[in-house]
Nucleic acid binder design. Sequence first.
DNA 1: TATTCGTGGGG
DNA 2: TCCCCAAGAAT
Length: 359
Amino acid sequence: MCDAAIADAAIPDAVLAWYDRHRRVLPWRAPPGAAADPYAVWLSEIMLQQTTVAAVKSYFSAFLARWPNVDALARAPAEEVMRQWAGLGYYSRARNLHACAKTVSAKFGGQFPDEEAALRALPGLGPYTAAAVAAIAFCRKAAVVDGNVERVLSRLYAIEAPPPAGKRLIYARAEALTPAERPGDYAQAMMDLGATICTPKSPACAICPLNGACAAFRIGDPARFPVKAAKPERPLRRGAAFYVARPDGAVLVRTRPPKGLLGGMTEIPGSPWTEDFDEAGAPRHAPVEARYRRLARPVEHSFTHFALQLSVYVGEAGANMPAPDGCRWAAADLENEALPTLMRKLVSAARRREFGGDL
DNA sequence: TATTCGTGGGG
DNA sequence: TCCCCAAGAAT
């Protein structure tokens, strides 16, 4: 018990010393000693929710170039924000991002609140993000617990309890360890440690600055932690999509409802996606009367909680055919559309026109 | 509390 | 190939 307490007291300094030598250089990170831009910190943290650093980089620089501060982002049309976000996933983040920018601009004079509780009240900021912005942008002592920190701490203390109890134990450890000095660097250090040393599969314990204090390392099986809940199986849903193009290449599209899957994004019209989809009944979901040809192979896409197979029907429209209710014509380049990856995949497949030999 | 929400890369 | 999962939040 005494040994553990002594080791705990030494952990923040050990982590910070490691960070000073091995920190990752990232576009949203201020140089050592420099003040962080709260707007850039917030923007990066929203983008990084459940999203890899590699995927975020180009989106972050594009957003920052286009909207250099929170007031500029607040003034942007929602459709442009969605379009700029297209491809990054979890699109409710983009809506909350815009709503948050408007709140900060209108109610806080363009300055982010500098306390964790006030940040937590903003749209899109949950426990993790509020703590991260408070610590990194405002040097507040806040317990920052993301997936990396969970992994590091669950190993450090060999926490066996499955969630949610295990997560509460982890959070308590995080609060106890968070230092008053350099809380932002400490948070980023723990995340860097998790991302580069204390990795999910084969952690590099030999070069870890915490191996001397790590219970899981002592036990000899660090990869066993954190203990996770069993994952539900992923069902297969199927449906039909109708790619209708005019001679000039314009494509019939529509906007999905603002909430739910791919909320507010542009889609190719089609049927609902269900586990008991009936291919024979597909034509009744066609947006316009036309002669359709079905692609030889369906478009496949994998979401987090279900897999999807879409039959693609390709039809041709006259040059001046009006768009039916709820649909519109999008220019052939689709540049002004918030197209999620699934829909880009679908458009590419339709334009390849691989119908097979049977039709 | 348990689900729902994307996407791309790595093992 | 398939499964895992990555700086989680909202409901």
